[in-house]
C-alpha cells in the first residue's frame, strides 16, 4: 500500500505528498488508519534517532483500520492512541500551542484528519503549507453544507443528504482549508425533487 493517487482537479483541492523526515528540534506526528504505514515507512527511511524527540497521536481510520500496536512499537518519546479525532483534538491543540518553532509536523491518513490537523496548526500561526502530509486509506470526505453550515463526516455518496438540514447536496472539489471541508451544494434547488441517483464515489 502506498500513497493515494487522486485525479487532477481544481486549484482549491488539496494535494498531498509523501512523508519525509525533515531536520527539526521536535517532531509531532498525527495519523489515522492506514496512515500508520506512512509513518513507519518514513521512520524506516530516516532512522530511529528522531524518535527520542517525537510525539505520535494515532486513531483508527473511518473504515475501522487500527494499526496502533505497530506505531506504539516504534518507541517514540510520547505515544497516544485515541478512539477518534474528536477525542484527540484537545490534546492536539495543547501540544501545538506549547510547541516552538523548529517543530516539524506530519499528518498521514484520511483527508478529514489531514485537514483538521493542518487547521489546528495554522490556528497557532505556523504556515498551513509547512505541515508534511501524505494520504493513505479511505477517501471518504468531510463536507460542509453551504446552506445550513453543518459538516457531515465520512461522506461516501454523491449526491448525499445533509446530516443536519436534510437537503440533497452534490459534493464539489472546492475545498476550504479554514473550515477543513469540501463544499456541498443543493442539487435540486431549481427543480425540487429532481435528484440524480446517488453514486458511491468515496470509499
Amino acid at each position: 500500500m502506498t500513497k493515494t493517487e487522486f485525479e487532477p482537479s481544481i486549484k482549491s483541492r488539496p494535494v498531498y505528498g509523501v512523508l519525509e523526515a525533515a531536520p527539526g528540534l521536535a517532531h509531532l506526528i498525527v495519523a489515522d488508519g492506514e496512515g500508520a504505514d506512512a509513518v513507519t515507512e518514513m521512520i524506516a527511511r530516516a532512522g530511529t534517532a528522531m524518535l527520542a524527540s517525537t510525539h505520535i497521536i494515532y486513531m483508527p481510520g473511518p473504515n475501522g483500520c487500527d494499526k496502533s500496536a505497530a506505531l506504539q512499537a516504534l518507541g517514540a518519546a510520547q505515544f497516544r492512541s485515541s478512539p477518534s479525532f474528536a477525542a484527540a483534538s484537545s490534546r492536539l491543540a495543547k501540544v501545538v500551542a506549547d510547541a516552538h518553532m523548529g517543530t516539524q509536523i506530519y499528518v498521514a491518513g484520511t483527508e478529514g484528519l489531514i485537514a483538521q490537523v493542518c487547521q489546528a496548526v495554522a490556528a497557532q500561526g505556523l504556515p498551513y503549507e509547512s505541515v508534511h502530509t501524505e494520504h493513505r486509506g479511505s477517501t471518504v470526505r468531510r463536507v460542509q453544507c453551504v446552506h445550513c453550515k453543518g459538516i457531515t463526516e465520512n461522506v461516501t455518496h454523491d449526491p448525499f443528504k445533509c446530516s443536519h438540514c436534510g437537503l440533497s447536496l452534490f459534493v464539489r472539489d472546492h475545498f476550504s482549508r479554514r473550515i477543513a471541508a469540501f463544499q456541498g451544494v443543493n442539487i435540486d434547488a431549481e427543480d425540487p425533487g429532481l435528484v440524480p441517483d446517488s453514486v458511491e464515489r468515496f470509499k
Binding site: I10, S12, D173, F175, S176, R178
Partner: peptide, 10 residues
Amino acid sequence: GMNFHQWHAP
C-alpha cells in the same frame, strides 16, 4: 482564507 488561485478554482 483562500489564496488567489484557490478562491477562483471553480
